[in-house]
Each structure stands twice: as C-alpha cells, then as structure tokens.
Design a protein around this nucleic acid. Structure first.
Ligand SMILES: NC(=O)c1ccc[n+]([C@@H]2O[C@H](COP(=O)([O-])OP(=O)(O)OC[C@H]3O[C@@H](n4cnc5c(N)ncnc54)[C@H](O)[C@@H]3O)[C@@H](O)[C@H]2O)c1
Ligand SMILES: NC(=O)c1ccc[n+]([C@@H]2O[C@H](COP(=O)([O-])OP(=O)(O)OC[C@H]3O[C@@H](n4cnc5c(N)ncnc54)[C@H](O)[C@@H]3O)[C@@H](O)[C@H]2O)c1
Lengths: 232, 232
DNA sequence: ATGTCTTTGTGAACGCGTGCACAAAGATGG
DNA sequence: CCATCTTTGTGCACGCGTTCACAAAGACAT
C-alpha cells in the first residue's frame, strides 16, 4: 500500500477526514490531489515533526514498583527514547541491576543530567518526594517532566509537565459507569461510548433524566442520589 | 476552614472562578451567596457525583512488570477501588502471590467477573493479547476498560475505553522539547508552559517563526527541518 | 492535448466551552 | 427592619476548534 487517502486514514483513526487533512496541512502540502499521501514519505514527515528522528535520553527517578516496570518497558527504545539512567534515593538500591542497568544514587542526579544532556525526566517517587525531585531535575537542566506521583508539580515557565494519574483514570471510568447504571428508569438511552476510535463521546441529547419531572424541585439543596445533568 | 469561596478554589486549581462556579452549578446550588461553599458538604456532593462513595471492584489482567506494579499500588483502595482479582494467562504464575493476592488463571476470567460483579477491567497484557482479552472482559459483563497496551481497542457501544500510552506521553514532551530547541534564532519567545496548574499552554502569538520570511517559499514540498507552525 | 475523475487544501459557517459582568441572594451589622 | 457588603449563579459574548463544502490540482484515459 504505497499511498493512502485522507478518507482511509480518517476512518482508521476515527476522526473527520477534513480535520485530518487540515492537521496535515500544518506540516506542509505533502499530499497529491487525486491520489492521496505517499505512506513512507508521510511517516517520515510526521516522525520528523514529532521529533522522533532523534534520540532522546531520559532518566527515571524512583525505582520502585512503577519505576522498575518503566525501566523494563521496551516500548520506549522503539520510539526513540533511551533510558540514560535509573536514579533512586535508597542507598541499598545503588548499583543494583534493574533491566540490566545499574541504579544510581540521587547524589549523582545533577551530574547524570548534565553529562548525558538529559532534557526529559520521569518521576516515579512517592508523592512526598516528587516536588523536591522535580526542583532538582529542573535546576540541573531538565525542561520536560513526566510525573506519575499524584501531586501537582510547580515548575518555572519554560518547563513542561505531563501528569499521569491512574486513580483519576479509574475515577473517570467509574463516573461514566455510575451514569450508565443511573439510567435505570428511562429507555436506556445508550450513552455515547468512546468506541474504537478516540471519537469524543457525545450524548445525543442532554437527556432531562430525573430532573424537573417534579414541579417545584428546583434542583436545589440535598437532592436525591441522582447524578446531575451536565455537558459532555 | 469551614467554607471556601469560588475565588479561593479557582486560584488553588489554577482555573477561572467563573468556570469553577459554572461547573459546580451543574451539580446543583450548593453554595451560599456572600459566604461561599461549605467544604465538607461540597466534598461529599462532588464525591457522590463522581461515584466515589461506592466501592468499585476491578480486575487487573496481565500480571507482568506493569500489572504487578499496579497491584501493589495503594492509591486505588484510597479512592474507592478494590482489586477483586489478578488474572494472567501464564500457568506458571497461577496461585503465586502478588501484593498478597493469588494470581488467577485466565480460564477463570468470566467466572471472576460475574461472581464479583466487576464492571471495570484493567488490561496490562502485551499488545497482541489486548483485543482478545478485551473481548472476553466485555462478553463477561465489563463495561469500562483501562488499557495500558499500545493498541486501539475495538468495543461495542456502551463500553468505555480509556487508554494510557506512556510512549505517547513522552512523544508529546519530546515534541515540545524540539520546539524549544528549534527557536534558536529568534529571541527565545518563551513557549507557554504547562505550569503549576493544569492551565492550557497558550502561545502568546502564533509566532511566525521561520516561515514566509523567504518570499516564494510557499511551505510546500520537502522543506527544511524547521517544525511547522500550528495551533496550540 | 483535452476531458474526466479523484482527492487535496482551505475559506467559511457552525457549535461549544470559556470568561466577563452583573443581578439576585443572603449574611451581617446597625 | 433596613442598609450594606460579599459572593453566588448565570445570561451573553467572544474565541477556537471542528466540520462542511467546494475550487483547484493533478493523475489517467482517450
Ligand atoms: N505502582 C503503581 O502502579 C502506581 C500507579 C500510579 C501511581 N503511582 C505513583 O508512582 C509513585 C511510585 O509508585 P511505586 O509503587 O513505584 O512506589 P514505591 O514505593 O515502590 O517506589 C518508590 C521509589 O522511590 C524511591 N524514592 C523515594 N524518595 C526518593 C527521592 N527523593 N529521590 C529518588 N528516589 C526516591 C524509593 O526509594 C522507592 O524505590 C508513587 O507516587 C505512586 O503514587 C504508582
Ligand atoms: N512496563 C511498562 O512500564 C509499560 C509501560 C507502558 C506500556 N506498557 C504496556 O503494558 C503491557 C504490559 O507490559 P509489561 O511490561 O507488564 O509486560 P510483561 O511481559 O512483563 O507482562 C505481560 C503479562 O501479561 C500476561 N499475558 C500475556 N497474554 C495474556 C493473556 N492473553 N491473558 C492474560 N495475561 C496475559 C503475561 O503472562 C505476562 O505476565 C504491554 O502491552 C506494554 O506495552 C508497559
């Protein structure tokens, strides 16, 4: 399959083809009208734009359950990320091999960052230590942080932080789960699900569920245990 | 601190106070004008709305590096999630204790789901097995899935899927990282960073970086290695 | 070379979330 | 009981991303 049309790609990704074309247009005009996009060329252009053509050294700080799993994860290397070092504050772990790599002590953090020109750091320490670790990473020159600790990190301008909070992911699922269950009475008005594609779940209609059916119940005060009706 | 104003909460969360009030208003009118919101009451109302007041049994499928880390994670129980079972296809793992809980074999998957009335499943298997596991979970009655495998899952309507892809998180960071580096010539036009609050990074101005400075360079074809200019 | 057919690239319209601004509510003090 | 002051709840306008729709571009056949 040497070429693909925006229509095909859009169907596979579950988005509107116009949106896909407009997005691509930001990278330049890499398509051929009447034909589509040259797959190999397109892949290269997108890879280059995303910075996947270069090697990004990263450090993982906090080699506990999660940190060790991350260190063992092969999916990073295949996307252009190289684990430059594993760092932990526990002296008993120093030198221990994790994923075939010796754990370094926190004392060496700054040195490791500078020597390897690391600009991306991963924080997998307990929440209490996250801000402190973050500060040291930033001071040493790291300008992008992936944070797994359930804390809001405070960073200076110019530093990007992305937070992955698994509990919140579960909470979001539970919220929708509760919604589905709560629709007991009505004819099941199938909740728009996040299907195969990342297509945003869209409720067909705001569904005036158990609201305003009782004249006078102006949705005030300690109402029943019926979830409120809100957008999205 | 018995009460808080929308202004205080908004500042702490890094959002607009009007937005915060409007969001709260979807839950009902739980504030008192001239005073603010009763903290304890507000926490209860939000917890209830999010479904945090009830216990959600979850199963984790694929007890490898990541699955084991998840099983050991204490942050779930504290948010109302209870690990009902750990499931793995590897017969050698069956019965082994992980996080003080015996690993069950995949053969029992359907039985476990039904008996425990599990509606939320976590997939931490290799990508190749994810869709198959997903299908079995859904067939057994699971209607919400948290997927860590780097695959797009196909599910029927009514089933929610959330995907956590760590590689993509790193790629997003790398993308912005490349941007910062690419601004070499210009006066560093500080990229709007995702700061302490989840405030969306907003570029002050689309920044006509290295574009249209050369009349005739209509941004077409294999241009230089300068990243394109795009929204957000 | 000309015509037809496919698919891109994009101007314009639409819809939705965000933020402004203010009236109404209610507490508090005189 | 009335005046004042604070803070909520929300109508309305603005801005941005998404989607529509179509002209232009290019491949391919005649
Ligand atoms: N395990 C999970 O699945 C999971 C899921 C979601 C979030 N998290 C979060 O990820 C973080 C790590 O979780 P975990 O289960 O791996 O915990 P863990 O206790 O197993 O590991 C924490 C590691 O961090 C090290 N550490 C502590 N302070 C440090 C410091 N100042 N500098 C460097 N290293 C330090 C410890 O020595 C330990 O090895 C926690 O914040 C947790 O809430 C974990
Ligand atoms: N380790 C990480 O930090 C990390 C990060 C991001 C994504 N992931 C993804 O998470 C998944 C798991 O990663 P991992 O590092 O834990 O891999 P792993 O190989 O350590 O563990 C996979 C586990 O799944 C089990 N398994 C295989 N097929 C199964 C099936 N059909 N049913 C039930 N169990 C099955 C295996 O027996 C094994 O125990 C992979 O898809 C990986 O890409 C992992």
């Amino acid at each position: 399959m040497p070429t693909v049309s925006s229509e095909e790609l859009a169907a596979a990704a579950g988005v509107n083809s116009a949106k896909l074309r407009k997005d691509f247009s930001y990278l330049g005009s890499y398509g051929t009208r009447g034909v589509g996009y040259d797959v190999e060329y397109l892949v290269y252009q997108i890879s280059r734009e995303l910075g996947l053509t270069q090697d990004w050294p990263v450090v993982i700080v906090g080699i506990g359950n999660l940190g060790a799993a991350l260190a063992n994860y092969g999916g990073f290397a295949s996307r252009g990320f190289r684990v430059a070092a594993l760092i932990d504050a526990d002296a008993a772990m120093t030198g221990k091999l994790v994923a075939g790599m010796p754990v370094r002590h926190t004392d060496e953090l700054e040195k490791i960052i500078v020597e390897n020109e690391v600009s991306i750091g991963v924080i997998a320490t307990p929440a209490g230590a996250a801000q402190q670790v973050c500060d040291r990473l930033v001071a040493a020159g790291v300008t992008s942080i992936l944070n797994f600790a359930p804390t809001v990190l405070s960073v200076p301008d110019g530093v990007d932080v992305r937070k992955v909070d698994l509990s919140i992911e579960l909470q979001i699922l539970a919220f929708h789960e509760q919604r589905k269950a709560g629709e007991g009475g009505a004819p099941a008005e199938a909740e728009g699900a996040v299907g195969v594609e990342g297509a945003a779940a869209k409720v067909t209609k705001p569904a005036t569920t158990a609201d305003s059916d009782r004249a006078g119940d102006d949705n005030k005060g300690p109402d029943g245990d019926v979830p409120a009706v809100m957008p999205a």
